[in-house]
Design a protein around this nucleic acid. Structure first.
Lengths: 243, 243
DNA sequence: GGCCACCGACATGTATACAATGTTCGTGCA
DNA sequence: TGCACGAACATTGTATACATGTCGGTGGCC
């Protein structure tokens, strides 16, 4: 126990403040794993053993399980009974559903966003778009994907509707997973100037054009995917010998 | 109750294979609690003590905690650290967000639903609407609310988009909570024939009119709410002495 | 020589014990 | 008599121990 405490203290040495609070620590761990998945440092299919995670983060399996269940609810990890957790591998159908949902919600939100956006919002969005462009230019694809998801999520948040914004958060996270499976390496799908153009429409208060542009933007991303059902392990035989 | 559990286990002892699987039991308990909340047998604000639930359902607190966390993710219960779980009491703002979200998603789904709906779907929907009317007539408001939520959820499912259908599920559940807090007793908000009319438009394949009608339908429900911030315990003083 | 069955290791699922914390009620003092 | 402090209680948070199920290897049998 003392040893684990020592390890924990070592991990937390950077932030000694209120590290004693377990809730925030859990939040932090959730973010760590979530980010790793979104940034493709953990690829779809990767196994997530409870013991290993518990050791890495210096808490017991109990806490890890809680976090894993939450990630499962967010559909970032898949929990198979008695087999444990692994990073979700989205199916082609899920990919279509997610992008259709984004099309409906993100586009539908644009008019309200254009109405409510402030100068501060615009500044922040421009900064995010700049960093994304920079990451893209310097070949940091993981970072670029993450920043792109953040951009879309931040945009939805401006609408003032927390429920829809949370939904967009989740859709963006899942989109990152989809890109990991079906995306073409070295090609993000997002044109680098798209987000800047979008900001322009919003700055002009033109919700209609922002909405239409967002629609094209999302369609472009979706079109850049290579949706090929890479046959899984087991179903292969089933399908082959079905006749 | 525990004895009944023991008997159940005894029955299963002969076949130790998959019957011991607690996953389905958990699912069942989750549904039990979820239904109780949606049907207003558990009112917003009601405390949900882990011990009590564990005893009622004959499992240990571990399992109950898992279920409670899931319900919290679905925003049906609120988990306050060190204070435990209670049925969520939606704020007026949340109520608005939820209905705005429903407006966007459920209406947006109607054209696709009209395109894909089958005769079997229509039969099932008519049956649901009939049972709802009947419950309403016989004064079973809890049952009516539940059936209404089921109707909307089932409708969204026809679109074929599982992601959006899941989202609508959650929105409908939360709407039940909202009705519990802001609804007028004895008045459901839904006109009893609304759902039948909607089915008519869908049967005719008229997605546009179904969409418009759904919009009015949801607006009518929202308009029937009495959004009065019934001052809670603590916030009261805060707001009063904020200046 | 190949296939099946058994067995050990490992990982997860569940329960329980313990620790920490919030709440409430009682008592003492002003 | 009212308020403040404190202790007992109740409840949740965490860890660990144990049970159960799955996977991989090895040996025997056909």
């Amino acid at each position: 126990m003392n040893q684990r405490q020592t390890i924990t203290d070592g991990d937390n040495s950077g932030r000694p403040g209120k590290s004693g609070d377990g809730a925030e620590r859990h939040e932090e761990i959730h973010r760590s794993i979530s980010d790793a998945i979104i940034e493709h440092r953990l690829r779809p299919g990767a196994r997530l053993r409870e013991d290993a995670l518990a050791e890495v983060f210096g808490i017991s399996r109990t806490g890890i399980r809680k976090i894993l269940q939450r990630l499962a609810l967010e559909q970032l990890v898949t929990l198979t009974p008695r087999r444990g957790a692994s990073v979700t591998r989205p199916t082609a159908e899920e990919a279509k559903d997610v992008f259709d949902a984004r099309q409906m919600v993100e586009c539908g939100l644009m008019p309200e966003v254009a109405r409510r956006i402030t100068d501060d919002d615009l500044r922040e969005l421009l900064e995010m778009a700049r960093r994304e462009r920079q990451a893209l230019k310097s070949g940091e694809q993981s970072m670029a994907i993450r920043l792109s998801a953040d951009f879309h999520a931040r945009l939805a948040r401006i609408s003032g509707n927390a429920t829809l914004a949370d939904f967009v958060d989740r859709l963006c996270s899942r989109s990152s997973l989809i890109l990991a499976v079906y995306g073409n390496p070295g090609h993000l799908g997002c044109e680098s100037h798209d987000h800047d153009d979008l900001i322009g429409y919003l700055e002009a208060g033109n919700g209609e054009r922002a909405q239409a542009f967002m629609g094209r933007h999302l369609k472009a991303i979706e079109a850049s995917l290579s949706i090929v059902e890479e046959e899984a392990e087991a179903p292969d035989l089933h399908r082959i010998f079905s006749d």
